[in-house]
Amino acid sequence: MQDLQQVYARQKKLVFFLLAFCALGWGFTPVQSVFAGLAIGSLFGLYNFWLLVRRLEKFDRSLSEGKKVASLGTALRFASGIAAVAIAISIPEHIHLASTVIGLMIPYVYLLVDRIVYHVKHH
């Protein structure tokens, strides 16, 4: 099994490529708000994924040491998702709401595809 940090590093690289694509789309297409929403959502999604990786490592350490297991920080990830949507709602002329919500899910879609590819290659 791969280390969680390796998976996160790949995720980060893919999101940065997506952000570069969003910058190009924002600069050269008339649908700037859609690309801005994807970028904002992807950034917040990457932040959520980073929080999840951190919490899972802490969870694993607690289990291996026999300590009481703490929360996985769901409330903080929900709050950051709400913050991304709040930004999109507050300036709808610059940031498209639906693309922001889609952007929030992109790191998790990447994770699903990455796991499928990993299992196809190794099984």
Rank of each mutant, 00 (worst) to 15 (best):
A83N: 06
F16P: 01
I102H: 00
S71P: 03
F28H: 11
G27M: 13
L76F: 12
K58D: 12
V69L: 04
K68P: 08
T74F: 05
V69D: 06
R61Y: 14
A83L: 14
S90R: 14
K67Y: 08
V101S: 06
L46R: 09
Q11V: 03
L38N: 07
S62T: 04
L38T: 08
A36E: 05
S80R: 04
A98K: 09
S71R: 02
I102W: 09
H96I: 01
L38H: 08
R10V: 10
A20M: 11
F49K: 03
L38F: 15
L43N: 09
F78C: 11
L46E: 07
T74I: 10
V101C: 14
F28G: 11
V53C: 09
G41S: 00
F21A: 02
E65G: 09
A36H: 03
I40N: 03
V7A: 13
G41W: 00
E65Y: 05
A39V: 05
Q6M: 09
L56V: 11
E57T: 12
F28V: 05
K58S: 06
I82P: 12
A36D: 08
S42Q: 10
L104A: 02
G81K: 03
L52F: 05
C22P: 14
I95D: 01
T29P: 14
S62F: 07
V31N: 15
Q6N: 11
I40P: 01
A75Q: 10
F21Q: 03
F16H: 02
G73F: 02
L97T: 05
V53S: 08
S62G: 11
A70N: 13
L97D: 04
L43G: 03
V34M: 15
K68F: 13
Q11F: 01
H94S: 15
P92L: 07
F78L: 11
A84R: 02
T29Q: 14
F21T: 01
F35E: 05
Q32L: 06
E65F: 09
S99D: 03
A36C: 12
V15I: 14
T100F: 03
L76Y: 08
W50N: 04
K58N: 05
E65P: 04
F78P: 04
G27S: 13
L63C: 10
L14E: 10
Y8I: 08
G73C: 09
G81N: 00
I87L: 15
S33M: 09
A84I: 07
L18M: 04
F44C: 07
L14D: 05
W50D: 10
K12S: 09
E65V: 12
H96Y: 05
S62D: 13
A23W: 12
L76I: 10
